[in-house]
Write a protein that binds this DNA or RNA. Sequence first.
DNA 1: TTTTTTAATTAGAATATTCTAATTAATTTT
DNA 2: AAAATTAATTAGAATATTCTAATTAAAAAA
Lengths: 138, 138
Amino acid sequence: MNELQNIIALLSREIVELEESAKEQFSFNELTLTQMHYLETINQQQNPNLTELALEMGLTKPSVTVAIDKLIEKEYVYKVKSDEDRRSMHLHLTEKGKLLNQMHDYAHKLLAERMISVFDDDELTVLKQLLKKYLNRK
Amino acid sequence: MNELQNIIALLSREIVELEESAKEQFSFNELTLTQMHYLETINQQQNPNLTELALEMGLTKPSVTVAIDKLIEKEYVYKVKSDEDRRSMHLHLTEKGKLLNQMHDYAHKLLAERMISVFDDDELTVLKQLLKKYLNRK
DNA sequence: TTTTTTAATTAGAATATTCTAATTAATTTT
DNA sequence: AAAATTAATTAGAATATTCTAATTAAAAAA
């Protein structure tokens, strides 16, 4: 197999494991995998309305309404009626819901610390340069 | 924020996106998120028995029995009675189930190709060296 | 301004996911 | 060998997840 691809596979696995252990650190155990998926999508979409969320997740609007009601009940999400269109409800994460981002940050911080402990300053500089070049491509 | 941590966050997001688009390429749409999670865990655990899978996933054995029965029905998984302990059933992915790995491979291959298109040979060599050093630490 | 469309919700049903309690069958301990 | 333990399953119930169809309310089109 392509060596680079193999390296990526190992790194990818490590990231997934760190994310999973971060999930345990934070109190997201009370949520199902599906509910986590709703939170992740709301987070990525930046306050979508219900129709946008349903479209993005490939589900019907009634399904999303019901699922969101549960997340509102659990205080991870709240709705805000749009001013431009009073029919539309925008979805926001509560402070509790925003812990999702702190959870991700924690996983990334752990990986960063591991790298810092493995590399010397020059190596870190080179690694950062290369990865930045990659991320800023196009 | 720590620059390295930020780079990791962006890279992590890219990997997640590539994995998600790979999932669409392969025919894993007929599975729920939860069912995918079962397959992923069986894959990681390398043919666990039912008790091991239940323990790893933090679920009860009856729950896992029922869930696995559905995945067997859909032909993603099969059971093999252990020779050492005839009570124990080891779980294996079928060929169809193993597409899961090809799906991951596909995502990793896409990322590798993107990197190859961004970096020249020297940069690739350095990047691979650094990441290998990281992965072989400890 | 009446009609049509659109965003969200409610109602009700089907399937999925999980649990506890009880059962079956094989292994281990006494 | 009998008793206790263990792996898996079955039965039955509770909750979660999703759908279609119908409803409400607001916006857009005629």
